[in-house]
Amino acid sequence: MNTDVILTCAVTGAGDTRAKNPKVPVTPAEIAAACLDAARAGASIAHVHVRDPETGAHSHKAEYFREIADRVRDAETDIVLNFTAGGGGDLFPELTGTEGEDRQIRAAAGSDLQSPSERHAPIAEMLPEICTLDCGSLNFGDMVYLNSADWLREHATLVQAAGVKPELECFDLGHVWFARQLIDEGLIDGDPLFQLCLGIPWGAEADPQTMLAMRDKLPANAHWAAFGIGRMQMPMVAQAMIAGGHCRVGLEDNLYLSKGVKADNAGLVDKARGLIEALGGSVMNPQATRDHLALRGATTGSAA
Rank of each mutant, 00 (worst) to 15 (best):
A32E: 04
A288D: 15
I229R: 01
N139S: 11
G86L: 00
R40K: 14
A204H: 02
S302F: 13
S258D: 15
V26I: 15
M214K: 07
A225P: 03
A10V: 08
D184Y: 03
R106C: 11
A107C: 12
E167C: 10
A288G: 15
L275E: 10
G274H: 10
V249S: 06
G199N: 01
R153E: 12
L127R: 14
G297P: 03
G87Q: 08
R18A: 13
G89Q: 02
M232D: 15
A32W: 03
I68S: 02
V24P: 05
I130W: 05
F65W: 02
G100V: 11
T27H: 12
P22L: 10
G15S: 12
L218E: 04
T157C: 03
D74I: 02
H175P: 01
D70F: 09
K217T: 11
K271G: 01
E154M: 06
G136R: 02
F65T: 07
R296H: 13
P53R: 04
A213K: 09
K262L: 14
I130K: 06
P93T: 11
A204N: 09
V159P: 00
V176L: 04
G110A: 13
S44K: 06
G163N: 05
G163L: 04
T289Y: 05
F171V: 03
D37T: 07
V11W: 05
L36M: 11
L295M: 08
P93C: 11
I31P: 00
A62I: 14
I276L: 12
L187F: 04
N221I: 08
T12K: 05
S137D: 08
V144G: 02
D4I: 00
A222D: 03
A57K: 14
V72N: 07
P286C: 09
M232H: 11
C35D: 02
M236V: 15
P235M: 07
R215Y: 06
I130R: 01
G280A: 10
G97D: 13
P235F: 02
G86F: 00
A179W: 01
A266I: 05
A38G: 09
A41P: 06
D216H: 09
T55L: 07
D37M: 03
R119K: 12
E76G: 15
L168G: 00
A226N: 03
I31A: 03
A108V: 07
S302V: 11
T12I: 10
A220W: 00
I200C: 01
A69E: 08
L152C: 07
A304H: 12
M241W: 01
L293Y: 06
D291W: 01
D70R: 14
A304N: 13
K262H: 11
W202H: 13
